[in-house]
Amino acid sequence: MKTEEKGPLAGVRIVELTAMITGPLAGTMLADLGADVIKVENPPDGDAFRSFRGGNYSPYFCTYNRNKRSVTLNLKSQAGQEAFLKLVQTADVLLDNFRSGVMERLGLGIEILRQKNPRLITCSITGFGDDGPYADRPAYDAVGQAISGISGLMLGADAQITGPSVVDNLTGMYASHAILGALFERERTGSARTIQVNMLESAIAFISDPFANYTMAGVAPEPLMRVRASQSYALRCADDKLLAIHMSSPTKFWVGTQKAFERPDLGTDARFADRVGRMENYEQLNVELNKAAKLRTRDYWIERLVENDVPHAAILTLQEVMDDPQVRHLETFVDVSHPSHGTQTMIRRPVRYDGSRADQPLNAAPDLGEHSAEVLATLGYSDEQIALLSSGK
């Protein structure tokens, strides 16, 4: 069951027609703010992420679908479409991440939706936009990384796509950002927006600084450009643990690094005399700092870096992140129970209002169709009708 409504979006209803990551993340971010997010899934399998490792409740699905309710409807059937349109009449926002044209082919284009609900805000997430030479292509995270320039800025000698779903996640964030703006505008003007968000432009917008350097200064970025400029280093210590430092531009951090690593000679080395020199000789300085780091354990160097006020952090495994004292202090992780699947660990919304997250809903991701009866009954359907709709007939 959904807990009592709370949060800045309490009372806002989002109907979600999404799967995998981009759309589900956008819906989750809005649900974390208190919106009632109803995820409409196609029976009998629902969101493809449900069965990623067997069953229908994978960790991937859970992380992108907390705080939601699940209803099963077959949108290719007349009865399913009728029920969906009744649900849309109760909604503030409709969110989908189908390929361009799918909603129209289902007979659920914007004209029909607005006839049912003139105040409905719609947000469609696609790979490349609604038209253009790539509009009909399928798109996933690696595709977005590659075509936007992100991969070109990150690929090293091993030429591997970066592990986390960067483009999927940031596209979902841009979509939720756009929906919040449209909700605010509708409260002031009464007008409902039709929003389009695509992975390609989201990914390009996310790396605006390399494009600015290229277009304004004629500098063609390469994978080490950012770390050279920021003076960031990953160092391996005597206990084989990794440590990151980020000196940026203030001279005091360079001076502090010399003191912390007990290498005053680096300060008199002509190659590293100023920030430009340290950028131009990044590889050589990296060698020297790694030589120093190899002499002591990571804990020793962390203590020294703290003493000298140098920006740094241990490079942690996931378990180490969860055990980190600052993370524990912030209460970033929380355990939540589901009646059928036991306990799952959630990552809390990384935003506080008035110094608190007490207004954040904390509900485990739903089972497939878990709330069909609860939601459809409010639309006037009988138990028999609900059973037929939930089966996909």
Rank of each mutant, 00 (worst) to 15 (best):
H177G: 06
L305H: 03
F49V: 10
N42D: 12
I112C: 07
Q385E: 15
R119S: 15
D239K: 09
P325C: 10
N281T: 03
A19H: 13
G342R: 08
Q344N: 12
M1C: 09
R66S: 03
L285A: 05
E4H: 12
P59E: 04
K6A: 12
A358L: 11
G369L: 01
S70Q: 01
G23T: 11
I207Q: 05
E307H: 07
F206C: 12
L376C: 09
R263G: 06
D45R: 14
A293S: 09
A229P: 01
D265R: 02
A205N: 15
L30C: 06
P59D: 04
G132E: 08
L295E: 15
E288G: 01
G181E: 05
S77N: 04
Y381H: 07
I302T: 12
D96V: 12
R236M: 12
R328T: 12
A217W: 07
D36R: 09
G109D: 15
F261V: 12
S340W: 08
Q360K: 05
A234K: 06
F272G: 00
P325L: 10
V197T: 07
H338V: 03
R271A: 05
E262A: 14
R349I: 06
R226Q: 13
P24M: 05
S191P: 01
E320A: 14
E201I: 00
H329F: 13
G172S: 02
A83L: 02
R349F: 10
S202P: 08
L30F: 06
M279I: 15
Q89D: 12
D131N: 14
S356V: 02
R236A: 05
M1T: 13
Q160W: 07
F52K: 13
E41Q: 10
L120K: 00
R328D: 09
Q385T: 06
S148Q: 06
Q326G: 06
R69D: 04
E288T: 01
W254R: 08
N290T: 09
L9I: 10
G132N: 09
D269M: 01
T378Y: 03
A135P: 05
S51H: 12
A182T: 00
R119C: 09
A31H: 00
Y233H: 14
G101N: 11
F211R: 00
G54F: 10
L25G: 00
G149K: 01
T18W: 00
H371D: 04
P325G: 08
A157F: 05
L362W: 00
D158G: 10
V219H: 10
L30Y: 03
I179V: 15
S202Y: 03
A387E: 12
L183D: 07
R186C: 03
I386W: 01
T171G: 06
D299V: 11
